[in-house]
Design a binder for these strands. Sequence first.
DNA 1: CTATAATCGGAGACAGCGCCCCGGTTAGAT
DNA 2: ATCTAACCGGGGCGCTGTCTCCGATTATAG
Lengths: 190, 190
Amino acid sequence: MPGARPLRADARRNRELVLDAARSAFAAQGLSVPLDEIARRAGVGPGTLYRHFPTKESLIEAVVNDQLRRLSGEGAALRDAADPGEAFFGFLNRIAAEAAPKRDLVDALASAGVAVGPAVTAAAEDLRAEIAWLLARAQRVGAVRNDIGAGELTAVLSGLLFSMRSRPDTDQALVLSVFTDGLRPRTPYF
Amino acid sequence: MPGARPLRADARRNRELVLDAARSAFAAQGLSVPLDEIARRAGVGPGTLYRHFPTKESLIEAVVNDQLRRLSGEGAALRDAADPGEAFFGFLNRIAAEAAPKRDLVDALASAGVAVGPAVTAAAEDLRAEIAWLLARAQRVGAVRNDIGAGELTAVLSGLLFSMRSRPDTDQALVLSVFTDGLRPRTPYF
DNA sequence: CTATAATCGGAGACAGCGCCCCGGTTAGAT
DNA sequence: ATCTAACCGGGGCGCTGTCTCCGATTATAG
């Protein structure tokens, strides 16, 4: 219902302040950050925060869901890409780059730490399905080892995201390449 | 002081009951399990638990530290193994197998979730150093790609351990092989 | 068997966090 | 300018989890 009632100017402003504060706090410290801290960062009272987002879950949803959906959209757009292998590995790169500085995305996708609501779970599931689709297509042309299934890829992906949480003095591109190389077709080693 | 005073028979028995309960609870649910739950499982009161382990950290230490130390010892024993590559990958396998059913080990090694004391951190650091040693030796003989350093390996290892937390219907050996393959020397792909 | 000292375990203090309510204030329409 | 309805925010409740105290109980020595 878009025309329910236009939000009052200050209410809209405060809502954005809260969302901005939540985005940066969640990204920096993960989903377990207290709501009071977000309210403090936003410069509003806890009561105001609660009015806009009745439960913590709804705030998480507002912050994380569109990030997940945007990624899912990018994945869907790659379904017909010319090179299936490039599409798959490029998408993996994209997700890693997006999630590396955002602990909340890692929490949501890897189901780590904080319990998350059904809406976020569903969005994460959509993203996983998108990856699985690209995986199957890349396997069909021999760009990815074909002995792994969607479940194994999910496990590897959660590990990949988690490893991005490490200290910033590690070369993240190098770490990522370990994962991508491991997913390539197995060649015999002598 | 070993001869301070022999623990009374029932006290020693209860201490073991608590340790057993903590081991299985930590393994099943991770380090964040409440102490009351451990006391309940052990069939003792919370007061009794506290007498033996004044702080949660001390209980975690008692449970996790010797597991870490045992692994470090196994790593040290492999320093002079005939095949450096086999030693490195075998040790990685060993750690993964040990940590797969034990969420507490993952928590401790990957610094995930619960904050852990300095003693456990130090033990984890020792284990990481052992792995780094084996890594360097394996790299010297060309069994492992030599563009990654100890920091990158730590990141990959934390990802590996975390990925072992996934649903049991995934083939963990397959997931592990993705990591090991990714660590092997890079071969050109066409 | 008795005495003594240690252990047991339930009840509760204390802190952190999510969630909620109400008096004062301000935006927006008439 | 005035009025009304919505918003602001500080204080508070309840829950959960760690840690503590103390009366009842039980193991060991003489």
